[in-house]
């Protein structure tokens, strides 16, 4: 018997196959799946926004109004600001939405601004201040690599003030230090990008494997039917163009 659950599993497999069919050629079934995805994704995001709003503001206001109005009355302000966001659709009052955006970006930026100097800079710099001499040669080598490549990368990203070579004159020692670190930086980053490339393959293939295991393999027949339909849609598309 075809229950909603069974039909859902078939539909899931078909959605995957139709979206993958785009890798071969654009077709009507891909377009259908794509539009279904956009519709559900947008609806989902609105619903989850309502859910978050409900759990943060509405539920406490409805269930325990006294405590809410005593302690959390200030929620009225962001609710009003949030409603002002809809003013962006007005030609005349679009600027009202800026008040909500202003609060959002200011708080976001302020929160990041106050801890980023410690988290992103101080802690990274202190982690790079390492002993360059010692009894353990492996550790010493690792420390040299860490220090030189970090300095090199930072040098590579210097876009404002750096030693330049004056034509005709002998380059200064500062210039040579700069150039050496610059190249160490580039080669260091190539190592980083190599690792990134290899890990990208891992992730992308991992996505494919899990999709096969979760959606396609359990519903092999539905997938085959969906693939045949996609093939027909591709052929029809080609014939129509001719």
């Amino acid at each position: 018997m075809i229950t909603w659950e069974v039909f859902g599993a078939w539909l899931s497999a078909a959605m995957v196959v139709w979206i993958y069919s785009f890798a071969y050629r654009d077709n009507a079934l891909y377009k259908l799946a794509e539009h279904m995805f956009v519709g559900t994704a947008a609806g989902y995001s609105i619903a989850l926004a309502l859910d978050s709003l409900n759990r943060v503001v509405v539920a406490p206001a409805v269930r325990s109004p006294e405590t809410f109005w005593a302690a959390s009355w200030h929620y009225v302000i962001p609710v009003v600001l949030g409603v002002l966001m809809f003013a962006k659709y007005s030609r005349k009052y679009y600027w009202l939405a800026r008040y909500a955006v202003a609060v959002n970006i200011a708080v976001g930026s302020g929160l990041a601004l106050r801890t980023a100097p410690i988290a992103n800079i101080v802690r990274q710099v202190t982690a790079t201040i390492l002993p360059l001499w010692g009894s353990d040669p492996v550790k010493v080598l690792n420390n040299w690599i860490l220090v030189l490549v970090t300095l090199g990368g930072l040098t590579y990203f210097l876009f404002t003030i750096f030693p330049r070579r004056v034509e005709g004159a002998r380059p200064s020692p500062a210039y040579w230090v700069y150039r050496s670190l610059y190249y160490i930086g580039i080669y260091g980053m190539m190592v980083g990008f190599g690792a990134l490339f290899a890990n990208t393959i891992m992730t992308r293939v991992g996505f494919l494997i899990s999709i096969y295991l979760i959606y396609i393999q359990p519903e092999a027949w539905a997938s085959i039917v969906a693939a045949v339909l996609a093939a027909v849609a591709i052929i029809l598309g080609i014939l129509r163009k001719r």
Binding site: A119, R123, T126, A127, A195, N199, M202, T203, R204, G206
Partner: peptide
């Protein structure tokens, strides 16, 4: 983390964060 973002957040792990 996803494999693809592992390398870019490695500095946080290296710094003991």
């Amino acid at each position: 983390a996803l494999s693809v973002i592992g390398p870019s957040i490695e500095p946080f792990v290296g710094a003991g964060q």
